[in-house]
Design a protein around this nucleic acid. Structure first.
Length: 477
RNA sequence: GGCGCUAUCGUCUAACGGUUAGGACAGAGCCCUCUCAAGGCUUAAAUACGGGUUCGAUUCCCGUUAGCGCUACCA
C-alpha cells in the first residue's frame, strides 16, 4: 500500500516549493492508487502562527487536489515521547543538561564539526536519572555510535544510493528542554505510526535523512522509502525565500493574479520532472498517468521571475494554453470573480470566446474586455478614429455610413461582416479603413478583439450610441 | 571549515556509449489577417574545465571549478 504525506510547518505562508512538494506527493499517491496524507508539523510552538496555518489551507484549497487523511503533530505528542522514551531505555539516547544557549559559541568556534559534549554523553545513568528527577531541564540527544564508525545507508528514489559515515553525524536532539519533540523525532515517530511508505520531500532534507534512518533503526522500525526532490531556486541560484524574493514565492500571489490552479500545478510539475516525451501542457489526469519518481531529475530548477516581470514566462504561457483550451462556460465562470458585479454569467459566456486568446492571466479580462462592461467609454484621443491613409473627413464618412448599416444589418457575426464589407466597397475604401474607425468608436482603442463578434455582443443600441459619440468628437475637431 | 548533492541553449528539459545534441518558453524574421492575439514557417542559442576508460563519450570513472543543501533544543 502506498501512503505518502505532505507535512508543512505553519511558520509562513504556503510557499510555491511546498506546493510543488504537495503536488508531487499527490501525483504519486493518485498514480499508484495510494493514500495522500496532510500532516501539520507544528512542534515549533514559538514560531507557529494561526495566519500561516490559514494561508496553507487557503493555498491547498485553491490547488483543489485534496487529501485523504489529516493530522496535526501537536495532537500526537504522547506518541513522540513514547518513541523518545523507548530510545532512551535502549541507551541509544542520553540527556544533555547543557543550558540551551551555552554551547553555541563553543560549537561554532571550533573549526571541526561539532559532534557531542563528552561529559553529557558519558554521564552515568544514575546521575542522569537523579538530575532529571530533581527537575533539571535537559535535551535528549541521539547517541550516534562513536566506538565504531559505520556508513549509514539508504536508497533514494531520486538520488540513488546514499551513504554517510557516522563520524560525520552529530549527536542531534530528539527532545528539547521544554519536552517538545524536535522535527527529526516527531517526523519519524509519525511517519512510522502513520505507516508512511514513501517520504517525498525537498532535497534540503537529504542529509537529514541519515539521522532519520538512525532513528528508525533505534526504534526498531523499517524505514520508509525516501525520495528527495530538487529544489526550486531564484534566478540568482539561491533558495526561494519570502524575505529576499517577495510575494512571487507565495501561492496566493499566483491565485490572485489569475492563474488557473491546474495550469499552475502543471507548471510546477515541469520544474524538476518531465514526462520524457515532449508534452508540456498536461491535464490533471495526464499528469497522474505520467508521473513516476524516475521522471524526477536531480538538479535545482530556476523559477524565472524578474523584478519587472514577476511571473515565469513559461508559467504564463501554460496558463494561456489552459485558458484557451478549457470549455468556454467553465472559463467564463472562472472569470466572474475578476469582473465583480460588472457582468452576468450569460454575458460573460458570450464575451469569453472573443477574449480567451488574448489573455495570459484571468485578471487580464479587466484590460482586454473592459469596454464590454463600461456604461460610458473612457475618454480616448479623437485622432485614433482616423484610419490609415485617411483623414478626419473619411473617418466621419465611415462612421456615418456605419450608423446606417448597423441600424438595419442582421446582428450576427456573418451578417455584420458582409454588411460592413460591402459598405466599404460602396465607399470605395479598403475593408481595414472601414473597420478601424468603427473599432475605435466602439471599443475606445485600436487594439481589441475581432470586430464583428465584438459588435454583435455589444448590441445594436450600444454600438450606435458609441458611434454617434465618435461622430460628435470628430465634428468638434 | 566539515559532510552531502548537482552541473546540456538565457530558462524548463530530451537524448538509459554511436543523433546533423531534440522539444518548449522567451528573442529575431517571414506568412496569415479587420487591429491585437492565436496559428504556421524560418532563425539564433547548450553538453563548465582537465584527465582517464572505450573503436567511440552529453552519457561511465577521477580531479578541478562553480552552485546548492545540511552542519539549531527551526522545519
Amino acid at each position: 500500500m502506498h501512503r505518502v504525506r505532505f507535512a508543512p510547518s505553519p511558520t509562513g505562508f504556503l510557499h510555491i516549493g511546498s506546493a510543488r512538494t504537495f503536488i508531487f506527493n499527490w501525483l504519486y499517491a493518485r498514480h499508484n492508487g495510494g493514500t495522500m496524507i496532510l500532516r501539520i508539523d507544528d512542534t515549533d510552538v514559538g514560531r507557529n502562527t494561526e495566519s500561516s496555518l490559514n494561508s496553507i489551507f487557503e493555498g491547498l484549497r485553491w490547488l483543489d487536489l485534496g487529501w485523504d487523511e489529516q493530522y496535526k503533530q501537536s495532537g500526537r505528542l504522547a506518541l513522540h515521547s513514547h518513541m523518545a522514551e523507548a530510545i532512551l531505555q535502549k541507551d541509544l539516547a542520553y540527556r544533555d543538561f547543557t543550558p540551551a544557549q551555552a554551547g553555541e559559541s563553543e560549537k561554532s568556534g571550533a573549526q571541526g564539526t561539532w559532534l557531542f559534549h563528552a561529559d553529557m554523553r558519558e554521564m552515568s545513568r544514575q546521575e542522569s536519572d537523579r538530575r532529571a528527577a530533581a527537575g533539571e531541564p535537559f535535551a535528549l540527544r541521539f547517541r550516534v555510535p562513536r566506538e565504531t564508525v559505520r556508513q549509514v545507508r539508504f536508497a533514494d528514489g531520486v538520488y540513488g544510493e546514499q551513504s554517510k559515515s557516522t563520524a560525520d553525524i552529530e549527536d542531534f536532539a530528539l527532545l528539547r528542554s521544554d519536552c517538545m519533540p524536535t522535527y527529526h523525532l516527531a517526523s519519524c515517530a509519525d511517519d512510522a505510526d502513520l505507516r508512511i511508505s514513501h517520504i517525498i520531500r525537498g532535497q534540503d532534507h537529504l542529509t537529514n535523512t541519515f539521522k532519520h534512518v538512525l532513528i528508525f533503526e533505534a526504534a526498531g522500525v523499517t524505514p520508509p522509502t525516501f525520495a528527495h526532490l530538487p529544489l526550486l531556486v531564484a534566478p540568482d541560484g539561491t533558495k526561494l525565500s519570502k524575505r529576499r524574493h517577495g510575494p512571487v514565492v507565495s501561492v496566493t500571489t499566483y491565485r490572485d493574479a489569475g492563474f488557473l490552479p491546474e495550469a499552475f500545478a502543471n507548471f510546477l510539475c515541469l520544474l524538476g520532472w518531465s514526462p520524457k516525451d515532449d508534452r508540456e501542457q498536461m491535464t490533471r489526469q495526464a499528469l497522474i498517468d505520467a508521473f513516476t519518481l524516475e521522471g524526477v531529475n536531480r538538479s535545482n530548477a530556476v523559477v524565472n521571475f524578474k523584478e519587472e516581470d514577476p511571473f515565469d514566462p513559461k508559467a504564463l504561457w501554460l496558463n494561456a494554453e489552459h485558458i484557451r483550451t478549457m470549455p468556454v462556460e467553465e472559463l467564463a465562470a472562472r472569470l466572474m470573480p475578476f469582473v465583480g458585479q460588472a457582468a452576468d454569467l450569460p454575458t460573460m459566456i458570450r464575451i469569453t470566446p472573443l477574449i480567451r486568446e488574448r489573455m495570459k492571466l484571468l485578471r487580464d479580462v479587466l484590460t482586454v474586455a473592459d469596454f464590454f462592461f463600461a456604461e460610458e467609454l473612457p475618454p480616448y484621443d479623437t485622432a485614433e478614429l482616423i484610419p490609415k491613409k485617411g483623414d478626419a473627413a473619411l473617418a466621419l464618412r465611415v462612421l456615418e455610413r456605419a450608423c446606417q448599416v448597423l441600424s438595419t444589418a442582421e446582428f450576427t457575426h456573418d451578417g455584420l461582416e458582409s454588411a460592413l464589407r460591402s459598405a466599404a466597397e460602396g465607399l470605395g475604401i479598403k475593408a481595414g479603413q472601414m473597420f478601424e474607425p468603427i473599432r475605435v468608436a466602439v471599443c475606445g482603442r485600436k487594439t481589441a478583439p475581432p470586430l464583428f463578434g465584438t459588435v454583435e455582443v455589444l448590441g445594436r443600441e450600444t454600438c450606435l450610441k458609441r458611434i454617434d459619440q465618435a461622430i460628435e468628437k470628430l465634428k468638434r475637431l
